[in-house]
Simulated scan of single mutants.
Amino acid sequence: MTGRAAVLGHPIGHSKSPALHRAAYAALGVDIGYEAIDVTVDALPGFLSTVRAEDSWRGLSVTMPLKAAIAAAVDEVRGVGEALGVVNTVAFEPGPAGPRLVGYNTDVAGIVNALRYAGAPDAPSAAVLGGGGTAAAAVAALRDLGTSSATVFVRDAVRAADVRAAAAAVGIDLQFRPLTAAARELPGYDVVVSTLPPRAADGTGADLAAAGAATPGILLDAAYDPWPSRIAAAWTAGGGTVVPGLEMLLYQAIEQVRLFAAVDGPMPAEVIDVMCDAVGAPRRVF
């Protein structure tokens, strides 16, 4: 029986996860289909009820705006996802009364690896743009890199519950600053992680470009469509290193494929190669 997997989110038409996963399963010789399904927060409970009734499901990738909602809907959350209360991956495990839905957060590993391969220093000074589920993963990733404090630039700090909870869970101090101040202050950080949706950082990018300031650090922009984003283009013009969101997507997807296809041990190099080729991501040394 063909297994099923999917990426859930709203909107979801731009997602490159299907290309990554389909390439991986074909290279592994695993019979798992993978699709993109538009699901809103309100529709999530009904969708999960439907998938629980089917034996073919192997896993779900989860993107905005569902990462916190699905953490409360699965049967168990493991690893850093439990501490963060934010899940981007759901694996299906057999249980006596039907499949058990187990949540994970592979975004943290995706961000850590993307920054490390870009040359991030140990314990970098760091800033995050945004305060949602991906920002929560970014805070946890920065803690893994040795950072003890970070600055979070948001439009409304009152609405940054996910990132506040993440900071408390992993033990990192946060300072909140208005997003309007980001362009002036970002050039002073070793690492900047933008977790804003596509085009939401355009204003900051325009301000950076207008200022013409040097940007010697590393920018990871989680948004990857359109690319290059305006903030990425401004960062490059300032002399900094830009890590496209495709790299984060690749590294977190490798962990998802491992779970969905039950891969033991390291992911074969040839599988990583075809995943890179599927989305045009650079091949890094692992």
Rank of each mutant, 00 (worst) to 15 (best):
Ala72Pro: 02
Gly119Lys: 01
Val154Thr: 09
Gln175His: 01
Gly33Trp: 01
Glu185Ala: 14
Ser149Tyr: 04
His14Glu: 10
Leu115Glu: 05
Ala83Gly: 15
Gly212Phe: 09
His14Thr: 11
Ala261Leu: 10
Phe47Lys: 01
Glu255Pro: 08
Arg143Phe: 01
Phe92Asp: 10
Asp190Ser: 13
Cys276Pro: 04
Pro121His: 14
Gly131Leu: 06
Thr180Glu: 14
Ala72Trp: 02
Ile231Lys: 04
Val102Glu: 00
Thr106Tyr: 04
Leu129Tyr: 04
Thr134Val: 14
Val102Leu: 01
Ala140Gly: 13
Leu28Ala: 13
Ala6Met: 03
Ala262Asn: 09
Ala168Asn: 15
Thr241Ile: 10
Ala150Tyr: 03
Ala166Cys: 11
Pro187Ser: 09
Ala27Lys: 03
Thr180Val: 15
Val77Asp: 02
Asp42Leu: 12
Met1Ser: 15
Ala53Phe: 02
Val193Asp: 10
Thr151Ile: 13
Gly132Gln: 07
Val86Glu: 09
Met64His: 15
Tyr117Ile: 15
Ala140Asp: 07
Val30Pro: 07
Val80Tyr: 06
Val279Pro: 00
Leu48His: 06
Ala136Met: 07
Ser15Asn: 14
Glu54Ser: 05
Leu84His: 03
Pro11Leu: 12
Leu249Phe: 04
Thr180Ala: 15
Tyr104Lys: 05
Ala183Asn: 11
Gly131Ser: 10
Gly59Leu: 07
Val39Ile: 15
Ala53Val: 03
Ala237Val: 06
Val90Ala: 05
Ala137Pro: 03
Gly110Lys: 06
Met64Asn: 12
Ala43Leu: 15
Ile218Leu: 10
Ala69Thr: 05
Arg177Thr: 09
Val41Gln: 15
Ala211Val: 08
Ala53Ser: 10
Ala138Tyr: 03
Val279Glu: 02
Ala237His: 08
Val62Tyr: 00
Tyr251Asn: 15
Val86Trp: 01
Ala161Ile: 10
Leu66Phe: 08
Phe176Ile: 00
Pro45Ile: 11
Ala281Ile: 11
Gly9Ile: 12
Gly81Glu: 10
Ala73Arg: 00
Ala23Val: 10
Phe92Thr: 11
Thr2Cys: 12
Ala136Glu: 08
Met275Glu: 05
Glu255Val: 04
Gly110Cys: 12
Val108Ile: 14
Thr151Gln: 01
Thr151Pro: 03
Ala182Asn: 11
Phe176Cys: 09
Ala237Ser: 07
Gly3Lys: 08
Pro244Asn: 06
Arg184Met: 14
Ala127His: 00
Thr215Met: 02
Ala167Ser: 12
Gly81Val: 11
Gly119Gln: 01
Glu54Lys: 02
Leu179Ile: 12
Leu219Ile: 15
Arg58Tyr: 02
Ala213Lys: 11
Ala136Thr: 05
Phe92Ile: 10
Thr236Pro: 08
Val108Asp: 12
Gly46Val: 13
Phe176His: 02
